[in-house]
Write a protein that binds this DNA or RNA. Structure first.
Lengths: 237, 237
DNA sequence: TAGTGGTCTAGACCACTTG
DNA sequence: AAGTGGTCTAGACCACTAC
């Protein structure tokens, strides 16, 4: 009945491993605290402490009265909220997305370096993000293969507007954390063309690396938009 | 012996109130968990849960083997880390600061609105942040009076390089959280002059509101620097 | 060695969600 | 009503820091 690892931190590691192994599937309930306490031969409080740690991390979601579940990841429109346009109207404006291209490419050295991926091939998705039909962001999204191979089959119009929930649904990969890097640059011809601006217009680039439940980087994203319309909010602790 | 509020959340609120009231001073140890349990007539675990909540918030700092203390606040060079220059050398470069002016001013409507301050007067400090003697950031820092009146007496060369620890030391105000807003603009004549650049050069502005232990805004800061040298890092959860 | 916080137990009862 | 997580108790023992 009882397993090796004692201590709530070891238990947390064990639980994390179950998530990684797919033994506990994303979006689904894990066993009750009482049954886990029995399984591992420890007190309820110890199980609760282990679960609390993973909940803090965003790996597990606790739901009072129901069950504790494995997170399906972020789902907010986490990129476009940084543009001023977003705030104007009273109503929630639904941002759209339009995939321009999705193709398999050879791995880019710079990307491999910053993500640590070992992939022999990447999927590169080019898309724009629009509000009221006007393109505001031009994005290049890189995904490692073979993890995301199911997306390679999709036609341009078959992609969801929100990618992270789509990753969860189609590829069983939950993005729960991301690191953004904001910098400024002058738009290149291609950027300007897609966004309907002049070459050399001030642009803001957000380079994002997104992480899954296991802490592994699973997406590299580079987005550019009009610097004049940009606003980024962040909290410092 | 026992006080009204039961439940760890009420206890946490009570403890927070003690910090606000100055009954528990910043940087100093609070009573041991055991003695608090006795004082409030609850179990140790309940006290621990209350303390954990405040520790999570950054209000209290737990120190295994020693005591739990009230936080003295952030102390990192939280603004200049966003510039590329910072990263070049192997050694830690010590950024400097130079106060240009410190004067009492009438409250600015925009600032009162975004902070909710009721102050009849503000302290405005103008300063630059430099590395290797070169000014990289031009900052305007607004502080509410009378809370910060002790700073009004200081001469320009008497200010510390790091303001947050100085607030804690001189005014007993601990900054534990801040919200930044990053945006892009073209430098005005004054900005450019201070930074040794041409008017109209691309600039990045970081507007920050900093909060103390009680969650009240205690500082409004507006910083501008060279957009081309700027990099902002943030984590998304 | 004394005092602090950290971990753990084995219960009890409460609050929320669902059938 | 049954099952889940949330709160609380009254202990025990461990691990770290200081003197």
């Amino acid at each position: 009945m009882s397993k090796n690892p004692l201590g709530y931190q070891n238990l947390a590691a064990t639980f994390r491993a179950r998530v990684v192994a797919g033994e506990w599937r994303i979006g689904q309930a894990i066993p009750s605290e009482a049954s886990l306490a029995k399984e591992f031969g420890v007190a309820l409080g110890t199980i609760r402490q282990a679960i609390a740690e993973l909940a803090e991390d965003g790996v597990l979601i606790k739901r009072h009265g129901k069950s504790t579940a494995v997170s399906s990841g972020l789902n907010g429109q986490s990129m476009l909220r940084f543009f001023r346009y977003q705030l104007e109207g009273q109503k929630q404006i639904l941002p759209q997305a339009k995939v321009l291209e999705c193709k398999q490419i050879k791995p880019d050295k710079e990307i491999l370096k910053s993500t640590g991926w070992k992939s022999k091939a990447l999927l590169r998705i080019q898309r724009t993000r629009l509000i009221h039909g006007q393109p505001l962001l031009y994005e290049l999204i890189y995904l490692p293969l073979p993890q995301f191979k199911k997306l390679a089959r999709l036609k341009a119009n078959e992609f969801d507007d929100l990618f992270y929930p789509m990753y969860a649904r189609v590829c069983e990969i939950a993005v729960i954390k991301a690191k953004d890097q904001v910098s400024f640059e002058l738009m290149k011809k291609m950027d300007a063309k897609v966004l309907g601006m002049k070459e050399g217009h001030p642009g803001v680039r957000v380079t994002r690396i997104a992480y899954d439940l296991t802490g592994e980087p699973v997406e590299y994203r580079s987005s550019i938009g009009d610097a004049m319309a940009f606003r980024y909010f962040a909290e410092v602790h």
